[in-house]
Nucleic acid binder design. Structure first.
Lengths: 197, 197, 197, 197
DNA sequence: AATGAATGAGGATTCATTCAT
DNA sequence: GATGAATGAATCCTCATTCAT
């Protein structure tokens, strides 16, 4: 019943400080998987276990639950920022990358639009930061006459709306619904894919 | 020593049957409050406490966590159905009532569109039922030429989109965003209010 | 390696609400023993284990570490108050009872004079209350010409001094040192014993 | 590429030997501060951190928790011994220096009179040594007719008593209470100050 | 039918200690 | 020698659920 066949007798060794970076990466990757499977409220211990490290290592790298989530989602946001920084970037292309992350990572959505479920932990603090970065990336390419440029809030409300539409067990279904949502909004979206093809 | 026992504020006949009904109502009301304040993951014990009953009573009325949520949301859905059943009902009016419940109850949204955060409890089963009832209520009044009548899924995708937009600490803010969302969809919505004014 | 031979198959039963009082008493008794053996910082889980109850029961009866300590020490203080309330009470007699508790319960001393080790938990709050009750009990019988009646603080400073002297592995040794301390203070002390002989 | 390496604020000769000594001193100083702020149970890691060294260094210099405490308190005891060794030393003067350390360092007291809270770690072993050195320093100057020279134990019992009285958040308050304690004992004490003015 | 106490597993968090580099 | 990452045991605390009364 051990969850994965891989490690076995790897744990009780102390590989020195060189593995620190590797461990951090493993934790982020594990967190991404766990979040996808069980949601943002998954036990932190399950992340450490999946990463193949002790709980203490996780707490060293990430002081609290929020720090883990931030680390995971930071990559998503960064890709969107990179898409926006590309020389040939346009709003449709950036929205495509954004949409890809919406369909790929439930956690991404949850954090981006936190507060529906009141009384949450301390997520809002860093959630706002991530959300702001996404907004800036998008707005940089929003032409004046664009459908979402009319009112101040329209852009991020539209993003939230698409997030709301993105449900379903498979990524394909989620992408299908996301495209339908953009279509209902009358907004053109480029290819739904991660940045860098 | 054969004094009559003191009456001691005996209300109706208190035959157990009546108490049971009262308790059930108290539990549903308490759950609604608790959900609003702490989200759907709030401890069940807090619901029983707020209702002023023992935990056992709660388990008698509702075998599990899902049953409680269903009972709470059932009222919301029923109102939408009633709005649809009204003699002078039209799609804008029903959407208005739907929107009111979206802005009023975070739990309503969470359950209606569950699955974003995979691995959830067992909510999907009854969530689908509630969602289906809402869809039927709306579709009964959807005229053929309506913006959301084009594709099969458009109606409920639009509902999900508005749900996604509904965030914010106060009901007023949430209503404001909901209206903006419908506007972006080009859909006309009647007064946002509970059924029965 | 199970610590005590007694219980065995007693735990997994639910004896209903009648045992609540019994459990509370068992917890207080267990806490008294544990405190004597391991000091006030002993794991709370060890107290629950020794009492033969689950951890949850302990938390039901005592919301935090301080509540447990208070409950334990409350009995000590109450005895001193009772000694002071006795019809034939005099200062020497009350000091004797106080001294008995000083020699019997290390926790009693620790709490009564908390703050030596800075940064402590939240003990001070209730510690002050207990300390005040002891002072009132003593002062009620302090004659005007008494050695400890000269300055306002002298009484409780003297109590603290005796507490400081009370060290040693056996109660007899501790009593011996306590008596020596009172002698050095020139204060007469009655029989060192619990209230009620 | 055969440039001379940048000097980079190289202080003395930095031959490892010297660094070790500096580290040890830093650790002792850090431990003293930490003990004062958080008590003797403070995490060892906090001491290493405050000293600006790795945890490994601490374990090299001090094999266990007790060794750290001993090193810290050794300085306190040494001052008392120096006070006793001074050409013009008398009992009042040595008691003054002792009292200064009692008021200044809660850890000093805790260790000197350990065992009240039984089951403690392994402190008693070295605590006895420190206590013995203090006693020898005092007894060297105790005149035959002195109030504390009557019975064998009276001297250290009195010291313990004063320690017991020394509580309070500020050093001034603690000194005030220490003086009151000595006064109640009828013992004259010289200026309360560290050795060497 | 109601009460509310008990159980006990689950998850968070902290540190003492070891050890590769 | 120094560094600081990794380990993992220990403890705290919370709840879902059961059940005697």
């Amino acid at each position: 019943m051990t969850q994965r066949p891989v490690p076995e007798e790897r744990r009780p060794t102390n590989d020195g400080r060189r593995v620190a970076a590797r461990n951090r990466a493993a934790l982020v990757a594990a967190a991404r998987e766990i979040y996808a499977e069980y949601g943002l409220d998954a036990p932190l211990s399950s992340i450490a276990r999946r990463a193949g490290v002790g709980q203490g290592v996780m707490y060293r790298h990430f002081p609290d639950r929020a720090a883990v989530a931030t680390a995971v989602l930071d990559e998503n946001v960064r890709q969107i920022e990179q898409a926006a920084a590309a020389p040939d970037a346009d709003i449709a292309g950036v929205l495509g990358v954004l949409t890809w992350h919406q369909t790929e990572s439930a956690a991404f959505i949850s954090v981006l639009h936190t507060d529906a479920a009141a009384g949450r932990t301390d997520i809002p603090a860093y959630a706002a930061a991530l959300s702001g970065r996404v907004e800036r990336a998008l707005r940089a390419h929003l032409p004046d006459g664009h459908r979402l440029a009319a009112a101040k809030d329209d852009l991020m409300i539209a993003v939230a709306m698409v997030s709301g539409a993105v449900t379903g067990p498979t990524r394909e279904q989620r992408e299908h619904r996301a495209r339908a949502a953009w279509r209902l909004l009358g907004v053109e979206v480029g290819p739904v894919r991660p940045f860098g093809e």
